[in-house]
Amino acid sequence: MTDPIIRVEDIGKTFGSGMRFSLAKQADEVRAVDGCSFSINRGETLALVGESGCGKSTLGRLLLRLIDPTAGRVYFEKTELTNLPAGRMRDMRRHLQMIFQDPYGSLSPRRSIAQIIAEPLDVFGLVRSGRQRRERVADLMTQVGLSPTFMDRHPRQFSGGQRQRIGIARAIAVDPSFIVADEPVSALDVSVQAQIINLMQDLQRQKGFSFLFIAHDLAVVRHIADRVAVMYLGRIVEIGPKKQIYRMPQHPYTQALMSAAPEPDPERKGKRIILEGDVPSPKRVPPGCSFHTRCPIRQEICSIERPPLREVAAGQLAACHFAKPFPIPLAKARPAIPA
């Protein structure tokens, strides 16, 4: 628990308006990520959930410095990544890899599978001969459930699920200790999603890397995560162990999110919290608590003072002035055929 591999301090990213000398500059800025702090432990899977446009993907890219932050710091083990020069940062990428959302776009169409999987090996000089390279690629392909006989083919000859396996093989090729997976299964068929999720879990168990798993599918997150962080408008509103977040959310947004998750059992109907209005534009984040415009339990203070993340239960933090446990009903054991 107290062995963080990734530590994030108050990270923020504001995308500028592009107009350098405009007076309207302030108004056109988009605060994609605004002051997020958390850590990820060795071997742990932290799932990052939230609706489209809340800054999940931006946060994941900030961690790997695929985007440079405008505020805050990221530490990998003892190293601060946010101020490393480009060359040193490239060396660090051996430990930090990424699995992408789009299995079609994230593999270069001109390169063979062997070239794609071996690229990180070549970058870090981990193979000496062509023969060793092919052996390593064959080994990696087997590990992700692909036949090595296909290593000279090109990505276009593979299905979405197979391409995602190739992407995973590429990510684990250099034995990283931290992987960001940006919605790795949302572009896949439901039948293939489970295979890929299980594959990633198996690999994590074998190799012990940590995961930041970005997703919007709560069922997938429930399956893979150890801890869950919920984002709303660029801020983490609640973070904690999976069980607590799913069973006993304390932030009203998490509560609404959990109550809205599709329920496979038609007999079981929890009370669904319907939020009013739309998500405000990240160009105009409401003052105080950014959720106050839609919050069912808002008070006067919410529009004035921004609530900090504070511990509301063991290991569970929520950013709400009025955080309170909100039990989500558990599935009752039901007879398969009603009497």
Partner: peptide, 26 residues
């Protein structure tokens, strides 16, 4: 804008290699 360019950056490929190996062939 293609994700495979971002993927190359994430892997740790240096900029000149990205240009010659991933941009120019495409």
């Amino acid at each position: 804008q293609e994700p495979y360019i971002e993927a190359a950056v994430a892997i740790g490929v240096s900029t000149p290699v990205i240009i010659f190996r991933h941009v120019i062939p495409n």
